[in-house]
C-alpha cells in the first residue's frame, strides 16, 4: 500500500484469474473492420484502462463485452468458461454493468424509471407482483447523492437534466448493478471537477470490493489516477498493455495518439496539454 498516489492500487490481484477474458476479438461492420484481433482481460479488484484515439474501436470493443455486439471472430471467457452473450440482458445477469458512451438513457422517462430500466425492483407475489416505486425512488436518490448530485426529484424526466447530471445517473446506475464487472465508456467527459473526482473515487471504491473495472478515457491524468493496467488501442488493434509504474504519462500519451506527432504538437503548444 503506497502513499504516493491518491488511490490504493492493488497488486495482490495479479494472481487472480480474470473475470472476463477476451481473446483475439474481431468485429466487422459490413466491409468496415472495427476490431482486428484485440485481446484483453479484467481481473477482480483491478481497474484496467482502455485508451486510444477517436475511432480506435474502444466503444465497439466494450460493446462486444457487454452483449450489444456479437464478435465476428474471437472468444470470450467469463470466469474461465466460454460464453457468448446474446443480449445485453444476458451480460447484465452475469454481473456486467456498462455506462455506454451515449449513456442509454431515455429523455422522456423519469430518473427512477431510467435507473431501473430493465431491472425493476418488485414487491408482492404472484398477481400482486409490482414495480416497487417507493424503493426505486429511494435507491435512486441515495445513489445520486453518493455521486455528489442532489436530485430535485426522482420523477424528474431525464431530458430535463444537464449533460453531466445525466452522465452521473448512468454511472450511478452501473455502479449499483455492476456485481462483477463495471465498464465505463468515457464516463467523465461531461463532468465537473467535483463529480469527476467523485467518479474516480467511486472506481477506487468498487475496485476495493473486488469488482473488475474497465475504464475508457481520453484523459491521461484520469487514467493514471486510478488505472492498474493500461491497454492502448489503435485502429482496431492493441498496441500493448502496460502495468502501472512501467510507463510514464508521456509515453502513454504518445501511445494514445498513435505514437506520432504528439511530441511535435506538444512543442508548439508549450506543453499545455
Amino acid at each position: 500500500m503506497t502513499q504516493d498516489t491518491k488511490f490504493h492500487h492493488g497488486d495482490a490481484t495479479q494472481n487472480d484469474s480474470p473475470i472476463v477474458e477476451m481473446k483475439n476479438i474481431e468485429k466487422h461492420f459490413g466491409n468496415i473492420i472495427a476490431l482486428a484481433g484485440v485481446s484483453f482481460d479484467v481481473r477482480p479488484g483491478e481497474c484496467h484502462c482502455l485508451l486510444g484515439d477517436n475511432g480506435a474501436g474502444k466503444s465497439t470493443f466494450i460493446k462486444t463485452m457487454s452483449g450489444v455486439h456479437r464478435p465476428t471472430k474471437g472468444e470470450i471467457l467469463f470466469e474461465g468458461k466460454p460464453l457468448n452473450f446474446a443480449t445485453p440482458r444476458d451480460a447484465m445477469e452475469a454481473g456486467i454493468a456498462t455506462v455506454f458512451q451515449d449513456l442509454a438513457m431515455i429523455p422522456l422517462m423519469s430518473v427512477t424509471r431510467n435507473f431501473f430500466m430493465g431491472r425493476e425492483p418488485t414487491t408482492g407475489r404472484g398477481l400482486m407482483k409490482r414495480f416497487d416505486v417507493a424503493k426505486a425512488n429511494e435507491v435512486t436518490i441515495e445513489a445520486m447523492r453518493q455521486m455528489g448530485i442532489n436530485l430535485r426529484g426522482p420523477d424528474q424526466a431525464v431530458g430535463t437534466l444537464s449533460g453531466g447530471e445525466r452522465q452521473t445517473v448512468a454511472i450511478a446506475r452501473a455502479v449499483y448493478f455492476g456485481a462483477k464487472v463495471l465498464i465505463l465508456d468515457e464516463p467523465t467527459s461531461a463532468l465537473g471537477v467535483r463529480q469527476t473526482s467523485n467518479v474516480l473515487a467511486t472506481i477506487d471504491r468498487v475496485r476495493k470490493q473486488g469488482i473488475g473495472v474497465v475504464f475508457i478515457s481520453h484523459n491521461v491524468r484520469h487514467a493514471l489516477a486510478v488505472g492498474d493496467r493500461f491497454t492502448v488501442l489503435n485502429r482496431g488493434k492493441t498496441l500493448g498493455t502496460a502495468k502501472r509504474g512501467e510507463i510514464t504519462p508521456e509515453e502513454l500519451q504518445d501511445l494514445m495518439a498513435g505514437g506520432q506527432e504528439m511530441a511535435a504538437l506538444e512543442g508548439s503548444l508549450d506543453g499545455t496539454i
Binding site: V68, A104, M109
Partner: peptide, 26 residues
C-alpha cells in the same frame, strides 16, 4: 403501465429502442 416492470419496458422500448435494449429491456 405505471406499476409493473413491463410497463416500464413499454415506455423504454418506445422512448429509445437502442437505449432500452442496451439497458437490458427485451
Amino acid at each position: 403501465l405505471l406499476r409493473m416492470p413491463v410497463g416500464n419496458w413499454i415506455f423504454a422500448a418506445g422512448g429509445d429502442r437502442t437505449a432500452a435494449s442496451n439497458s437490458g429491456v427485451p
